[in-house]
Computed example of a mutant assay.
Amino acid sequence: MPVISRIVSMGLRACELGFAGVIAGIVGSQLHDHRSGDGMPLARFIYIEIVAGISLLLALLWLLPFAAGFAHWPVDIFLSFAWFAAFGLLVEWIGGSTCSGDTFSWSQIGIHSFCGRYRASEAFSFLSAIFWLLSALVGLWFIHREGRKRTTVVAPAGEGA
């Protein structure tokens, strides 16, 4: 069974790496285009770019076979919360932008415009938060299961109490 959990963990890490790369590219492009302006939207994009950079680094390190331990689930939870915060910042900012629609109305993702890129960064930040949370849950499940195996002691047959 540890093989299945390791394969699932590596799959989740690969997706986290891809999502962080996509978000880093989109938000980096938005930062490049947003050279002048007030500090508030720029601060949001800088925060998201930092979270994406940290996610890229950690997902890449933890994707390596020798670093496939499950003991780093607290960092996974922290990054999940950081991605949920990034998603919240993007959702909150949409009220002041020209992009219209519901929070989960991601129909403009394929359109090569500001709204399309914005919606794509919103969608991928939400997916990244979910995948980091799933990685934490897989790590917790694995640690809990292994801990239960080590503490269970079976008495030999024929010995009474």
Rank of each mutant, 00 (worst) to 15 (best):
I54S: 10
I109A: 03
A71D: 12
A71C: 13
W106R: 06
S100H: 12
D76K: 06
R148D: 08
V75P: 00
P156D: 01
I4G: 09
I48C: 02
L89S: 03
S36I: 14
A68E: 05
L64E: 02
R6L: 08
V153M: 08
A20Y: 01
S97H: 09
L79G: 00
V3H: 12
L140T: 02
A129M: 01
L140E: 04
S105N: 07
E146Y: 10
G95L: 10
A136G: 02
F78I: 09
R148I: 11
Q30E: 12
F126V: 11
R145H: 12
M40K: 15
T151W: 12
H32Y: 11
S113G: 00
P65D: 00
V154T: 04
F131N: 09
S9M: 13
I4Y: 04
L90C: 04
A67M: 14
G37I: 01
T152P: 06
I50D: 06
A52Y: 07
H112V: 11
L42K: 15
S5K: 11
V75F: 02
G39E: 12
V91N: 06
G160K: 09
L60G: 10
T103A: 13
P2I: 15
A123M: 09
I50V: 09
F78V: 07
I143G: 14
I23D: 04
G39R: 12
S113Q: 00
L31G: 06
L31F: 03
L140N: 02
F126C: 09
D76C: 10
A71T: 11
T152L: 12
P41F: 01
A67E: 10
A24E: 06
R117F: 14
V8G: 00
A120H: 05
V27L: 01
R6Y: 02
W62K: 11
